Simulated scan of single mutants.
Amino acid sequence: MDEISDLEDVPEVELGDIQLSLRQEAENRVVEDDGYTLFGCLALNITNLLLRIPARNKNKTTQGTKTIEEYTKPDVIKKGAVDLLSKHKKQFKSVLTILVDDNTPEALPNSQSESKESEAHMETFYQRVIEDCKSDEKYKPYAKLCIYAAATCINTPIYIASVNEAGEMQWTYFKPLFKFEGQPEAVINYVTMFISSDNTFHGIESHDQSALVPVARGLVGMYMSFLEDTPETSIEVPDELRNLPIASKYRLCYNLNNDMVLRCW
C-alpha cells in the first residue's frame, strides 16, 4: 500500500464504506463513529487496549523507564512525541522529505545538503515543525511525522487506514524508529486507526485477538512512492554508487534481502 496521500484530493468516503472494507479483511474490526485529533484518538485506543491485557507486574520495569499506562492522555503522548522530535533531530530530519506534506522546495530545505545556508534553513524549518506539532490544528501537515514520533514514544507499531485517490482503502505502517532511554516496554502488539479526508482520526477496534495484522507498507514503501513521483533528472545519485559494477549493485540489494530496495534501485 502507498503512503497516506494528499487527503484533500481524495473522494469523500462514508465511514460505513470503510466499515465494510475492514470487515472483508477481519470480521470483527470496527471503526469508531467519533473523530479525534491524532493524539486524542491514540490515547483512547491505548486505554481500550490496556483493558484487554491481563494484569501484569509493572514494577519489573527498569528504573527510569516509563510504562505504557502513562500514555493514556493526549497531552502526555503529544509531549512525549514532541520531546523526541527535539532530542533526536538527526533521526527525524533524515526522513522529513517523505513525512512532511508541506514539501515544496521553498518550504522544505534540502536535507542532504551540507552547506551552512541549507543547514541553517533546515534548522529553522525543523524548529517551526516542532512548534506546530504542539498544536492540535497546526500539526496536520506533519501528521505522518507525528505518527512516527508517537509510535516511537509508546514503542508500539501504528497502522493507519486511509483512502487513496481512487477511493480505495489502504493501510500504512508506522513502526518505532529507534530505541531511547526511558522507552516503555512493548506490551501492545499494534494500534489501528482510520484518518478521514479532513485529517480526523477514528479508532479501529478489533475484538478478535486473532485478527490478521493489516497488510501495509512502511517507511521504505513511502520512500519508493516518493521516488516514483520524482522526475529522474532531479534524483542525485552519488558517483561512488553510480560507478559500482552492475553485479555489485545487485549483490548489495541481495544482501539487504528486500525486494522493495531492489525496486528503488
Results as ranks from 00 to 15, higher is better:
G80K: 05
N255S: 12
S225D: 15
S21Q: 13
A143E: 07
F201K: 00
T65Q: 15
D136Y: 02
R29T: 10
S225M: 07
A55R: 03
C133T: 09
E119R: 14
S21P: 04
S21M: 07
I130H: 05
K60T: 11
S162M: 02
T37F: 05
D136E: 14
K144G: 08
G221T: 03
R52F: 07
S5A: 10
A161G: 07
N110Y: 00
V187A: 01
A55I: 08
K134D: 14
N243Q: 13
I53K: 04
G35K: 07
N45I: 13
A149L: 00
S118E: 15
D102G: 05
E3G: 11
A55T: 10
L227N: 04
N258R: 09
E119Q: 15
V100T: 12
K89F: 07
M1K: 11
T47F: 07
E69V: 01
S196T: 02
I46A: 03
E123W: 09
I98E: 10
V10F: 02
V129T: 06
R263L: 12
L38V: 05
I147M: 11
E106I: 01
C146K: 05
I235Q: 10
R251V: 11
L20R: 13
Y223F: 13
L42I: 01
F194G: 08
Q24E: 14
L51A: 09
K78S: 09
A43R: 03
W171S: 03
D259V: 05
K116I: 09
D198M: 05
A161S: 11
G167T: 08
Y250D: 14
Y36L: 09
F174K: 05
N255P: 00
L212G: 11
P109C: 01
M222Y: 10
L84F: 06
L256D: 04
M260T: 10
R217G: 15
L177N: 07
W265H: 12
E3T: 08
I158T: 06
L244Q: 12
M1F: 06
I130R: 05
K140W: 02
Y139I: 05
S86K: 11
L84H: 06
K89I: 03
I130S: 02
A43F: 08
P176D: 06
V261C: 14
T37P: 00
L145F: 03
A247P: 02
D34W: 02
E12D: 15
F178T: 04
Y142Q: 04
C41A: 15
E240K: 00
T230Q: 10
P245V: 13
S225Q: 12
V261K: 01
V82A: 12
N28G: 12
L227I: 13
I98Y: 12
L241S: 08
L38Y: 00
P176Q: 09
I160P: 00
C133L: 10
A149S: 14
N243D: 15
T192V: 06
I235D: 03
L145A: 11
L44Q: 08
R251H: 12
H121E: 15
A81E: 05
T65G: 05
